[in-house]
């Protein structure tokens, strides 16, 4: 069978014009156009460019949501099996548009998509985690290398073949950690690396250290006496029996449990599901991790107005940052909706 492919390009590559025409809105044409001709030559009989969707870079940048929707509909109307976008080389707005269109295709149409960019294109940082971006040179002169590389990758996806490493398949690193077997054991690799480091020779770490993002500190509570406070823990305290089966490590979920009327996280009703620390102490007195007893006293004394009626709990043991982030956002949204003023989060 011949796969149906739609190509997304900007006004320049469509031959409409340069910067002066960047304001043109989305349009759809049948068949291949501009760089699409080069793809057509590479695809042969295996795939066909059934249509080309064009949008001015300026228009896209200024009307992202609206343009995105229109473009997606135009693409969908061709009933494609896959989409290619660009390549955008080092054109920033074009790269951003290619990335955004590709991401939307992936999320909303669920079909394979490949784009191409120069590594310094700002579109790379924005979209490389979600979209396969083939590495290209910085200008259109690199089209002769970009087209075969992008074609190869999209054909692999269409055929359902596994995607190889960035080096093997020519795409820009997506920041995903993938296991592989080396020729040497880890200890030998470590000693090799140390010998090189000591000699001042070049060496390559197997795990580049990440840089963490920051969140600006929230405003403090001005009137604690009238504040509602919620209790959250990553120490895995759950109602005994762990009703939601929160995993001992690598938790994929968090629990939300009512503590309305609960005066103390006693050992009869609560225990820890955490697999990363000695559970004896937390199980003997769960208040050591989830300090409901003292918070109730403080509530009675009027130090703050109210302890929120639910607590949230998960196991922070090998649990991925992405999961924690998701839990945090969901919990935050709910607390905000319920008028909670501040959170005490305990970790083990």
């Amino acid at each position: 069978m011949t796969y149906r492919i739609v190509h997304y390009i900007n006004q320049f590559f469509a031959g409409i014009g340069g910067e002066e025409k960047a304001g043109v809105g989305p349009e759809s044409r049948n068949g291949a156009l501009g760089p699409g001709m080069a793809f057509k030559a590479v695809f042969g009989n295996e795939a066909e460019i059934v249509g080309t969707v064009i949008c001015g870079d300026g228009y896209f940048a200024e009307n992202m949501d609206e343009a995105g929707e229109k473009i997606l509909k135009m693409i969908a109307d061709f009933k494609p099996d896959a989409v290619i976008a660009g390549p955008a080389f080092n054109a920033g707005r074009y790269g951003t548009a290619c990335g955004a269109v590709s991401e939307a295709v992936l999320k909303k149409l669920g079909i394979p998509v490949v784009t191409g960019m120069y590594p310094e294109n700002p579109g790379v940082d924005m979209f490389r985690k979600s979209v396969y971006i083939v590495e290209t040179s910085d200008s259109a002169r690199g089209i002769k290398d970009a087209v075969p590389a992008m074609s190869k990758l999209i054909m692999k996806m269409l055929r359902g073949e596994p995607i190889g490493s960035p080096a093997d398949d020519g795409y820009i690193q997506r920041g995903v950690r993938v296991n592989r077997f080396h020729d040497k054991i880890g200890a030998a690799r470590a000693v090799d690396m140390l010998v090189k480091k000591l000699k001042g020779e070049e060496f390559k770490t197997e795990y580049p250290m990440p840089v963490f993002d920051r969140v600006p500190p929230a405003e403090p509570i001005k009137d604690m006496k009238n504040a509602v406070i919620a209790l959250v823990t990553s120490g895995g305290i759950v109602p005994k029996g762990n009703p939601d089966h929160i995993e001992a490590s690598s938790a994929s979920k968090y629990g939300t449990y009512s503590i309305e009327g609960v005066q103390s996280a006693d050992e009869v009703a609560y225990a820890t599901a955490h697999g990363g620390y000695d559970p004896t102490y937390a199980n003997t007195d769960p208040n050591r991790v989830l300090p409901i007893d003292v918070l109730r006293e403080m509530e009675k004394e009027g130090m703050f107005s109210k302890l929120y009626d639910y607590f949230f709990t998960t196991v922070g043991n090998g649990t991925s940052v992405a999961s924690s982030k998701k839990f945090g956002s969901e919990i935050g949204e709910r607390l905000k909706k319920d008028g909670v003023d501040a959170v005490i989060l305990t970790s083990t």
Binding site: K325, S329, L335
Partner: peptide
């Protein structure tokens, strides 16, 4: 989790033993 809750604008205090990890994160 701390950061994601705080990102919604609610103040969070993190009570934890291994302060350096909390600082790094």
């Amino acid at each position: 989790m701390v950061k994601a809750i705080e990102a919604t604008g609610i103040a969070v205090v993190h009570i934890c033993t291994i302060v350096p990890i909390s600082q790094t994160v």
